[in-house]
Design a protein around this nucleic acid. Sequence first.
DNA 1: AATTTCACTAAACGTATGTTCAATCAATTG
DNA 2: CAATTGATTGAACATACGTTTAGTGAAATT
Lengths: 215, 215
Amino acid sequence: MARHPQNAALKLRIVRGGAGTLARRDEILVAAIRVIARDGLSQTTLEKVAELAGISPGTVTFHFAKKDALLLAVLDRVSDEFERARRAAIIGAGGDPVAALGALVAATFDPAVSDPDRVAVWYAFWGEANARRIYLDRVGSLDKSNLADLLGLCRQLIDEGGYAHLDAEAVAITLAGLIEYLWQGILVDGRRFDRRAAIRQARAYLSVVFPRHFG
Amino acid sequence: MARHPQNAALKLRIVRGGAGTLARRDEILVAAIRVIARDGLSQTTLEKVAELAGISPGTVTFHFAKKDALLLAVLDRVSDEFERARRAAIIGAGGDPVAALGALVAATFDPAVSDPDRVAVWYAFWGEANARRIYLDRVGSLDKSNLADLLGLCRQLIDEGGYAHLDAEAVAITLAGLIEYLWQGILVDGRRFDRRAAIRQARAYLSVVFPRHFG
DNA sequence: AATTTCACTAAACGTATGTTCAATCAATTG
DNA sequence: CAATTGATTGAACATACGTTTAGTGAAATT
């Protein structure tokens, strides 16, 4: 049954370019995220996704022509969500590197952003990155821009905050590694992961490196 | 064709407990590592593994009853190789934490240990870790013991080296994160990964934290 | 009201793939 | 030499799964 008005669908078609309404596409993507997180990419089937979305298997291929396209759309969505959260944190800081670094850490461990399912999906694509170049490009580019942001902020704080003795690149790389390492705990511990402790540990490093700005 | 003497096989049977000679099992495992690295876990088939090993598909299931068993054996092998390299580095240092930390870093980026295929395999299993508890246990436990080793060595160096102002746990976590982050570069850059630069960056952190011992 | 378009279903299709199995070949044993 | 055992093959089997397609109902368009 077509549950949504056609004019809305037509309008959206112009914006998107694929088949189906945005709402249904979204439901499928959400279901796919859940299945990938639960069963892994190797055990993810269109039937499982369809069942979780409460639709027939054929509808999934109606909205996403190929399974590959669905998986890529999932990766894009998760990637976009992470990226958007990062940008919001930086922009919200209004040019203040101290606020930006703190906001980045907070955003990274915000349960609304890095919920266990999304984290599992992210690692799932990392796991196939060596096999599928397109996956490596996506996950790799997010990682690269993350490091670039951290590097820029560290440089700024080193310049403006009087930390001339510090090597910005070394600090940025170490910070990125620490954050990713802590983030990995979400995969391991799931709902039991202590987000406050992670934020505390990330800020602890910042307070060691930039003692006059992170107390 | 049975290419190996039976008495050798019989002797080995006692030690192992599975079907087949050790040599053939080994060939299959090596082929499987290659296929997993190249095509990912989701596209790894027994036929591909068999073809790369130069045997028939049936022989693979003769030596590894189930595909799952083969994959687990691959994980165990890679895991053991990493673990053994780590232990060798620590033992070789003869109780000296400075030498041990340096050796651990060197071992981590030793091309004989962390060749791109093995790293890709490792990430492949991480990617399925959320779906298969057994994978999470294996990769997670290696990670845990790595952190535990680093923590022990940091504690020792802090005590013996006069760094009482340092928080051992914070240093160990940061170091583990930095090393893993750099290690990730092997997956991204493959053969082009600059191992010397990675070792240099890891040691740079150590020299900042323990200036009197890493110059 | 008739027609067209869209979202969807359910079944069918074909292929890929893990697994089984009877047969074979080599080597060891008695 | 005969018999047994172990390793291997290659085909057969079964099934899971991505994809296709004919058909349906509802909404929108004319």
